[in-house]
Simulated assay, not measured.
Amino acid sequence: MTETLRPAAPLSSPPPAPLLAVDRAAAELRRGGPVVVLAPDQAPLLIQSVEGVTGDSLERLVHLSGQPLALCLTARRTRLIGLDPGPGVVAALTSDLPLTADRMLRLADPGTAEDMGGVGRIDDLSVVPLLAGTVADAGVQLAKLARLLPGIVTTPVACAETVRSWASSRNLLVVEAAAVLGYAQTAARSLRLVGEARVPLVEAENTRILAFRPADGGIEHLAIVIGTPDPEQPVLARLHSECFTGDLLGSLRCDCGDQLRGAIDAIHQAGSGVLLYLAQEGRGIGLVNKLRAYRLQDAGYDTMDANGQLGFDDDERVYLPAAEMLRLLGYSRIRLMTNNPFKVDALSRHGVQVEERVPHVFETNTHNLSYLRTKALKGGHLF
Rank of each mutant, 00 (worst) to 15 (best):
V174C: 12
L149T: 03
S169W: 07
R189K: 08
L145N: 04
R170S: 04
H221I: 03
L148F: 14
V163R: 01
N171K: 14
L149Y: 02
A146Q: 02
T207I: 07
L145P: 00
A143R: 02
A188F: 05
S169A: 12
T207V: 13
L145Q: 09
L191W: 15
I224Y: 02
T134N: 10
V163H: 00
V163Q: 00
L201T: 00
I226M: 12
A143I: 13
L145H: 11
A143P: 02
V163W: 00
R213I: 08
V180R: 07
R192N: 00
V194G: 04
G182H: 01
I209H: 00
S190A: 01
S190H: 00
S190K: 04
Y183P: 03
A197C: 12
E205R: 15
I224W: 05
Q185L: 13
A184P: 04
L210G: 03
R213Q: 15
E161Q: 06
L148Y: 03
G227P: 11
R213E: 09
V157Y: 08
P200N: 09
R198M: 04
E176C: 12
L191P: 03
T155I: 10
I226Q: 10
L193F: 06
V153P: 01
I226F: 05
L145E: 05
A167V: 06
V202C: 10
G195P: 08
A223M: 15
G139Q: 04
T207R: 08
T186Y: 12
E203Q: 10
F212D: 03
V199H: 11
T207G: 09
L191D: 06
L201E: 01
L181M: 11
I209K: 02
I152V: 14
V225T: 09
R189V: 15
L181T: 05
R189G: 11
L201K: 10
A184Y: 08
L201I: 02
P214Y: 12
L142A: 03
F212I: 06
V225D: 12
V225K: 08
L172P: 07
R164N: 00
L201Q: 09
Q141N: 10
E205T: 12
S168P: 05
R164P: 01
I226V: 11
I219D: 05
E161R: 09
L191R: 11
I224T: 02
P156E: 09
I209V: 14
